[in-house]
Simulated assay, not measured.
Amino acid sequence: MSALHDLIARLPKAELHLHIEGSLEPELMMALAQRNGIELPFKTVEEIGAAYDFSNLQDFLDIYYLGMNVLQTEQDFFDLAWAYLERAHADNVRHVEIFFDPQGHTEREIPFATVIDGLTRALEQAETRWGMSSQLIMCFLRHLSEEAAFETLEQAMAHIERIDGVGLDSSEMGHPPSKFERVFARAGELGLKRVAHAGEEGPPQYVYEALDLLHIDRVDHGNRALEDEALVKRLVDSKMALTVCPLSNLRLCGVERLEDHPMKRMLELGLVATCNSDDPAYFGGYVNENYVRTAEAVGLTAAEIITLARNSFIGSFLPQAEIARHLADIDAVIASELA
């Protein structure tokens, strides 16, 4: 293992951009389909893996929503989350802020409670076993209507104490943040944190809308913000965190080669960039793999890798005392490296 690989492995990290449904590995998809008597258009795990080979966002979303069909029971959602959490723990992830897509389940007549009960049981077990903290962010599917988002927020009210924030995901183009201005305002009134996918495929204007109309606390992706110098300055000055997902950007052709990824430039510009796995089962790598491959591709220095790890906690929704504790743990790793 190279020195940089070893550093990445040893650094405590938070993961801030992870769709739990996007951690559904082919083996688990097949196992859950068999357990629930669901017929898939694939006969083997290898065929599922081959279907995970796509080249654009819509093709990815097609297989992503197909995979959701195997998630039927509370135990299924527990197993899904637990499989991810074990991998995160192995990558020295100390805190996770997980997205889930209730509309992808309730529209299949899976009760909201079934979803959140399974997920939170796994998160609680991770805290008990490893001390891993977590927060849960409920996403609205932007290709659906604002009315549907309001209905989902209403369904969430019975479980609101277990939900820390709302997000906005799915097909970005043609569904600007402004479409969801009112439902995000209501979420803010409820005291929920607000994040949104913006500037992944959509233009810088979508980032402006997310900031000015949705009043987000963090930008998910944000790559295309770099096309607008004034927007970059605003993000730097406000210390707005960006949850960047390099291997996702590569698989969805946001960049042609990982060597073209803007991560290093983001750090050089002073942006609070973080490194995350997005939908790791589909995009070929969990959080450490994103760190390692990006570092190799764009030439991140040890100092820049440490900055990414620090940013992951600074950009989190943890209390300041908890952030300080994690940053002290990073400092301890650095001190041991120098000893």
Rank of each mutant, 00 (worst) to 15 (best):
Q205K: 07
Q205L: 04
Q205F: 01
Y206I: 02
Y206G: 00
Y206E: 02
V207M: 00
Y208N: 01
E209D: 05
L211C: 03
L211Y: 01
D212P: 02
L213F: 06
L213P: 07
L214C: 05
H215L: 10
I216Y: 03
D217H: 15
D217F: 04
D220I: 12
H221E: 03
H221A: 04
G222Y: 02
G222H: 05
G222E: 02
G222K: 04
A225Y: 08
E227N: 09
E227I: 05
D228M: 01
E229V: 12
E229K: 07
L231A: 03
L231Y: 05
K233P: 01
R234D: 04
S238Y: 01
K239D: 14
K239V: 00
K239A: 13
K239R: 15
T243W: 09
T243M: 10
T243C: 14
T243G: 10
C245N: 14
C245E: 10
C245Y: 05
P246C: 10
P246R: 09
L247F: 12
S248A: 14
N249C: 11
L250M: 05
R251Q: 15
R251K: 15
C253Y: 14
R257D: 15
L258D: 14
L258E: 13
E259S: 15
H261E: 07
H261R: 09
P262E: 05
P262T: 08
M263F: 12
R265L: 15
R265K: 15
R265F: 04
R265V: 13
L267A: 10
L267W: 13
E268R: 14
E268N: 13
L269P: 08
L269S: 03
G270C: 12
G270D: 10
G270L: 12
G270P: 07
V272G: 06
V272I: 13
C275V: 13
C275F: 10
C275N: 11
N276M: 12
S277D: 05
D278N: 10
D279R: 09
D279V: 12
D279S: 11
A281R: 06
Y282W: 14
F283P: 12
F283K: 10
Y286R: 07
V287C: 09
V287Q: 13
V287I: 15
N288E: 14
N288S: 14
E289F: 06
N290E: 05
N290K: 03
V292K: 15
R293T: 02
A295D: 08
A295P: 07
A297Q: 02
V298W: 13
G299N: 02
T301E: 14
T301C: 12
A302D: 13
A303C: 07
A303E: 15
E304R: 01
I305C: 13
I306Q: 09
T307L: 12
L308A: 08
L308M: 07
L308G: 06
A309D: 02
A309K: 06
S312H: 03
F313Y: 00
G315Q: 00
G315P: 03
S316Y: 03
F317A: 01
F317E: 03
F317T: 00
F317M: 05
F317Y: 09
F317C: 01
F317V: 07
L318F: 00
P319E: 01
P319I: 08
Q320C: 00
E322K: 06
E322T: 10
I323D: 00
A324M: 02
A324Y: 00
R325S: 14
H326P: 02
